[in-house]
Design a binder for these strands. Structure first.
Lengths: 158, 158
DNA sequence: TTTATACCCGACGCTTTTAGTAGGATTTAA
DNA sequence: TTAAATCCTACTAAAAGCGTCGGGTATAAA
């Protein structure tokens, strides 16, 4: 089992779309800027998210990505699944053949743990994240920072 | 966050001691044979378990390892901790500085998940594992296999 | 029709971790 | 003295993580 930046980035980026995507598609460049994630890396993650039909893309200027379903129906667990992070603590991918064809001593312990984690993540929708106070606070801070950066750029142009 | 064979091996080996260690120390060679774990690798894991005072060692022939506390007071979470598997889903080790010094958009989500996992694993003692039906079944199967192997060896000697 | 914006795609590369192996040194019971 | 066991360090092959780089291609706007 692993849960690294890959899964975290994917969820963060999807949440970014949920927060800002109500007025048309969001470019990965914008997500990259707001969330501090490398653009190339985001492209790779979104290729997977698109293959799993979690987002759809609009090419060309003004294009970007949109969530392909309402925020209430997209859950953290499927986002992590989509980018290939297995939320599975067993050594046998749940196949119960950990010790030459049979279950190992602790198979059911890891299997229970996997269920626990999966349950937890399957219950959290993008909609519920958007409503969280802490998410709103961080989002406000990021928007503020974006405005500052913008004004610095504008000043530099003058 | 990761949970790989390292943590699984450690828990399995500790459970092996809990199951068979009531009549004196258990050698790692025995654990290796029963649980299909490389002996050298076990040695490395037990070095860490010993440093964290989860087991104590007896050197020389007839020696091996014993649990250093009663099975009721040893929990899965501390075994995994001892071998350096971090059961922490955040990207900042819980320090809330994921996005240049401040929390990232999803910090609290991962923090909640980490708590969830830690809670789950902190509640499971070696004693409770020993009592589980599935553990007892696998244990019985392993003992049977050990006896078969033994008789094959004895036959070969004849 | 050109140009700039954005998605799309594959290859590569550095680093860290995993899951060991190898080889020996030390302790100690028989 | 011998053999069984723990101890200890170093090494390694393979995988995965986390990107970078360089080029495509579609398309809206100038």
């Amino acid at each position: 089992m692993r849960l690294t930046t890959k899964g975290r980035y994917a969820v963060t980026a999807m949440l970014d779309l949920a927060l800002y995507g109500d007025r048309g598609p969001i470019s990965l460049a914008d997500v990259s800027g707001r969330q501090d994630i490398s653009l190339s890396y985001l492209e790779q993650l979104f290729a997977k998210l698109r293959r799993k039909d979690l987002v759809c893309s609009i090419r060309g200027p003004g294009g970007g990505y949109r969530l392909s379903r309402p925020v209430e129906t997209i859950f953290v667990a499927e986002i992590i699944d989509a980018v290939d992070e297995r939320v599975d603590a067993t050594g046998c991918a749940g196949k119960s053949d950990c010790q030459d064809g049979q279950t190992c001593l602790t198979h059911n312990l890891w299997s229970d743990l996997s269920d626990q984690i999966h349950h937890f993540l399957s219950d959290i929708s993008l909609a519920s994240l958007v409503e969280r106070r802490d998410v709103q606070n961080v989002s406000a801070r990021q928007l503020q920072r974006a405005r500052n950066t913008q004004s610095i750029i504008l000043t530099a142009v003058d």
